[in-house]
Each structure stands twice: as C-alpha cells, then as structure tokens.
Design a protein around this nucleic acid. Structure first.
Lengths: 140, 140
DNA sequence: GTAAAACGTAAGGCAATCCTAACATTTTGT
DNA sequence: ACAAAATGTTAGGATTGCCTTACGTTTTAC
C-alpha cells in the first residue's frame, strides 16, 4: 500500500473519476474536462499518466476503470474533502460552493494529524450543537 | 493597490523576506535559501522575478529592500499564516511545528471569506476558553 | 448506414519552479 | 591586502501542468 502519493493535480483527476464512477458507473474524458475546467487534451494526458502509475486502467479510446490503488487514493482524498467541507460549512458557516472550493484546494496539503484533530473537533461540535449556534449568534 | 496577486511560490519568498527584515533589518539570499530549503540559484531567480514585479528592490549583488506593494503582499500572507497557525495550535491542538507547516501550505489557497469566518471563530473561542478545554477533554 | 457532431489524442508550445555545475563577487580571517 | 571561504549568478536541464490546433475515432440522428 506504499506509493499512494500523487501530485495535487492528479489527485483532482482521481477524485472526479471515483465520484463519477460511484454516481453513474461510468466516466468519460469530457466529463472530467468539464468538472475540472481543463481542456480535453489535458485530460487525455492525465489519464495516460494515471494509467502509467497504476491508478486507473485505460487505453486509447477505451473506458476508464479504477484500480485498487486508485480506489485507495480516491478514498483518501474524498475523506479529506468531505471532512474539510463539513467543517467549513457547518462550523464556519461558509455557503456550500465556497466550502467546496476551499476544500478542493486545502485537501491536497493537510497533514494526517490535522485531519485527525479536525475529525475529533467535528464530532465534538456535533455532540454540542450549542457551540455552533452560540458562535453564529456571536457574529451577528 | 491592484495586482497584488502573486504565485504561492513567490508568496513564500516575500513572506521570508518580510519576516527577516522585521527581525534583523536585513536579509540575504542565502538566508532565504535556508529558510525555504531551496537552492541559491532558485532564490536568485525568484529575487529577479520579485524585483521585476515590483515587490522588492534588488539588483545584482545588492541588498534586498521591500516596496510598499511588497509590504502589502507580505502583510496579507503573514496575517493568513498567523490566523491559521493559531487555529491549528490553539484550537485543534497541533504542536507548533506541525501547525506552522500546515499553515504554510494552506495560507496560499484559502478565500477571504474563510479567513474572515475563521477570525470570528478564533475570537469566539478566545472569549469562551471552556470551548477548547472541553474539546480537549473530549478526546482524551 | 452515413454524414455530422461529439469526443479523444497527438504534436508542439509555454510558464513556473525546481535542480546542478561552473563561474563571479564579496566577505572573512590572519 | 590577499587567499580562502562564503555567497550570488548564470547556463543548461528536468518536471508538471496547462494550452491550441489539427487530426482520429466514435456516437448520434436522420
């Protein structure tokens, strides 16, 4: 399970691929291109690279499937994404788009330990709803 | 005061320059090289670029000074840095090194609004010390 | 089933950073 | 002041990731 490391850029691709596969059981290069706002050519390049690194199975014009290694990587980044989004929206009160945008960037750079503590904090906040409601009152 | 935007990389350089100038009234390329863990050559290149963009005054073998535009940019990134570090250490309980390391990366990607809300949250937490102490109790 | 539209790939570029190695300049120590 | 050490610059390369344009392949709609 070593060598799960991947660049931020490729992490974005694997995240989209995994999310699309979960939702629709299918993902095309054009979908990725739209989701990430990059050209079809860039997607093509990234897919070749992800295949080369063993995160997906892919060949010319063939459909995209994800490998176990890819699943691991996707699970990791999606976990980070969700945790951060939840904190940003539920605690800090950012609207969903802004929470997601920020999470998409932060998710690539945070340490394991930060995530662990944030996870604890969210659980604590959920078991003490007064925390968030009092905080929100305080900034009105 | 427009055009304050700068890449993450150069933001790191301006941050070190400003911090060194505040502390020692002086900063050399070699200091930056050590602080950022990059080669002297990379520093040389970055200084040329920062000068070109008007963030610092600098010429071959000359001493480095920061311009008003550079100060603005530095102030902004240092504010983000401190806010994030404070949250990560005082609320989440990361040790200082890990809080700083994470802040150094996150500081380049967060939105204004996130910072504003985080600022409010920190103020709220400071005026309610029980919040943090109860949270820390909860994870023991 | 075939032409048009949609989609995917290849080639060639560009910009941002980073590096090492070699060379230039400045600073230090005696 | 002058040699040695420290620091700064330049040249040449590598990587990553994005782009556009042109062309290949597949799908869609009659």
């Amino acid at each position: 399970m070593t060598d799960l490391k991947i660049t931020s850029g490729l992490e974005d691709y694997i995240e989209v691929i995994s999310n699309r596969l979960s939702k629709y059981n299918n993902v095309r290069a054009i979908d990725i291109s739209r989701d990430l706002g990059v050209s079809r050519a860039s997607v093509s390049e990234a897919l070749r690279r992800l295949n080369e690194l063993g995160y997906i199975n892919y060949g010319r014009y063939s459909s995209i499937t994800i490998t176990p290694k890819g699943e691991e990587a996707a699970k990791s980044v999606i976990f980070r994404h969700n945790l951060l989004t939840k904190f940003l929206s539920e605690v800090l009160g950012l609207d969903n788009d802004e929470a997601t945008d920020n999470a998409c960037k932060i998710e690539h750079v945070v340490s394991e330990n930060l995530l662990k503590q944030l996870d604890f904090f969210l659980k604590y906040a959920e078991s003490n709803p007064k925390l968030v409601s009092d905080f929100k009152k305080s900034i009105k």
